[in-house]
């Protein structure tokens, strides 16, 4: 029997297995690269405004919902609802208070109800486009400037925009752990 040939094949196949373990991890950056290239996860980028033709014939009620996920911030909208004509540029202001005794970095993630409304909700400016770092006890007012695309189906009369702040751990704010 050819012991050396067997051993050589063993080493090669073991190397393939090790490389595939690495490939599993390589799928992580690959996933984000592909998503960016296809524009699938462009949460942190301003939307382009397709039409600013104000449709004054109807009004859409926009509700603002605010949440924080296990972090010591208080997060509220100054106005909880807004009556908006599609096509009009609207600003909503949110207030966030860091109630902890140390600096914390957070990232807000938006979501929409009904889900299909997300495609018509065009944000020109948003605090959710970047991480927010608040010092101990700091209060900050943060705007969102948006336009509702007039192409929004007519049967959608109410849109809920919900923001959840997540803590970004290890973001250089001097705090570690959960």
């Amino acid at each position: 029997m050819n012991e050396r040939a067997n051993r050589r094949l063993l080493v090669r196949l073991a190397l393939v297995a090790a490389a595939m373990f690495g490939f599993g991890y390589a799928l992580v950056p690959l996933y984000y690269t592909v998503c960016d290239a296809l524009g699938l996860r462009d949460l942190g980028r301003p939307d382009t405004i397709v039409s600013t033709q104000v449709d004054a014939t109807r009004t859409v009620r926009v509700q603002f919902d605010t949440n924080v996920r296990s972090m010591g911030w208080q997060f509220t909208a100054l106005e909880h609802t807004a009556e908006v004509h599609p096509g009009a540029v609207v600003q909503a202001v949110f207030r966030v208070v860091n109630a902890t005794g140390h600096a914390v970095t957070g990232q807000a993630i938006p979501s929409y109800a009904p889900r299909l409304a997300g495609g018509y909700f065009r944000k020109v400016e948003c605090f959710c486009f970047q991480r927010q770092t608040l010092g101990p006890g700091e209060t900050r007012l943060m705007p969102v400037v948006f336009v509702i695309d007039p192409a929004l189906p007519r049967d959608v009369a109410t849109i809920t925009l919900s923001y959840t702040f997540f803590e970004v751990e290890g973001a250089g704010n001097g705090q570690t752990g959960a």
Binding site: L13, V16, A17, A18, A19, M20, F21, G22, F23, G24, Y25, L27, V28
Partner: peptide
């Protein structure tokens, strides 16, 4: 098996 079992091992390690 050699190609994909390590990928599962990576996923559960993550």
């Amino acid at each position: 098996l050699i190609a994909v079992m390590p990928v599962l091992a990576g996923a559960v390690t993550m």
